[in-house]
Design a protein around this nucleic acid. Structure first.
Lengths: 242, 242
DNA sequence: GCGGGCTCCTTTGGATCCATAATAGGCTAT
DNA sequence: ATAGCCTATTATGGATCCAAAGGAGCCCGC
């Protein structure tokens, strides 16, 4: 059997997903032995995987003390959004003249799904129901799916990689599931998606670029508002990265 | 003695510098045992260091075959410059209102040093002397120093990290030391630096932003031209990354 | 009663050891 | 002579082993 991937890489991918998905809370110390018995390997590949996560900025090595999942300070969150705004703007600009009819269909489908989920989310909040965490996850994924269509069309692997790594700042669903009074802000996201879609459809690279930039910046502000509203009450970490 | 850093990190830093500096040619396979005896450690920390380099995109693991220093395709080079243009534009915009008088002095000094080296370089080329590799290295470092002043003032660690990682595309001095007939393009870099400096000095964030963007894009085109002029004659790698 | 220091335990960082995949070279059969 | 197969070598991936740093808890002196 030809080995197509190495244990360290597999483990790194899993842990990466868990951290960016919020399954592992920021501030947690990851015990090597614990991980090694979980993945049924020795500590060696575990440590190599952790090195990779460290290089990606997801964890920090505290020599002789362990690895800790990095938490994001408000400043870092803000900066990450500024970066993502520029990168998405670039990707959208490049993607616009490259979008085929098929791509546009994909974009439409993604937008429609996102729109539906946004409505569902709003209705659920209005009915005062307990917030369904999985619905938020779906909503986020639909949001990402929309942007992914653009990334794919842009065919810019570096931009895609960097921008996606900046997504990790979302810290799972804890941020999004926070408040219901932000309805219209969620809805604004949907409207912005449509605007971007229309600009692309119209072949306006410059317009799509500006809209994409504004969209990311605005969703960044949304997150800041939500976090502000949360105060420190809903977060289990000090909100401070080394 | 308190251990402030780990062997793996030290090794990673050294190798990182060597790769981005071009001391290790793209395409090279890095033998673990060789590295371990060079750094006088076992293969374990070496492998952890290599994992880090892999996460940074500097090398690729080919399972059971070794790690290979990634080479950059023309497309990747182009994309990296587009990214760097956006990030530098952002950093410059943010830095402009934050620049203190002291920062401006630093910027001036960096610019002046860069200017001098540019002239030296031109004169050397005009006299038809054998190109002095170390002079090019100095010139590049002076170029980076100028931009570093801006990064520092911007106080955006993420942007700085990403943009600097995009610098690695320069592949040492092989690119720059290529031709003498590109004098005015080198000089153009200098003029652009001055324009950026003046825009910052005038407090025009938007102007500085545009100038920074154009500057990076233009130097990216310069590199493309140089590589084009080189053909495949001066490069020891196939110019293709996995 | 309390603070400082000493000892033991846990966990990490690193070294060494082992199994296996890839490859190079030789051998055989045609 | 040459193509194909088999073996021996080498380097990697992973496991196990060892030394040392950090911290918790205990003990002793004041």
């Amino acid at each position: 059997m030809a080995t197509l991937s190495t244990k360290a890489d597999d483990i790194a991918r899993v842990l990466e997903d868990e951290i960016v998905g919020g399954a592992i809370a920021p501030g947690t110390v990851m015990r090597q032995e614990q991980l090694s018995e979980r993945f049924e390997v020795s500590r060696t590949p575990v440590r190599e995987a952790l090195r990779r996560l460290a290089a990606l900025g997801l964890v920090t090595f505290e020599p002789n003390r362990g690895v800790r999942v990095r938490s994001i300070s408000p400043g870092e969150l803000r900066e990450a959004h500024l970066v993502r705004a520029e990168l998405e703007a670039l990707a959208t600009e490049v993607a616009t003249p490259r979008m085929t009819a098929a791509d546009l269909v994909l974009l439409d489908e993604a937008e429609q799904r996102f729109s539906e989920l946004t409505l569902e989310l709003r209705d659920q909040a209005r009915r005062g129901e307990a917030r369904d965490s999985s619905l938020f996850v779906e909503w986020m994924q639909a949001n990402y799916a929309f942007h992914d269509v653009i990334y794919t069309a842009a065919a810019m692997p570096l931009v895609e990689r960097l921008a996606k790594s900046a997504r990790r700042t979302f810290i799972g669903d804890r941020v999004w599931s926070a408040r219901a009074e932000l309805d219209e802000l969620y809805a604004k996201n949907d409207l912005q998606h449509r605007a971007i879609r229309e600009a692309i459809s119209a072949g306006s690279a410059a317009g799509a670029r500006l809209l994409a930039r504004e969209h990311v910046l605005s969703s960044g502000r949304l997150i800041e508002v939500v976090i502000e509203a949360l105060g420190s009450g809903g977060s289990r970490d000090p909100g401070w990265g080394s």
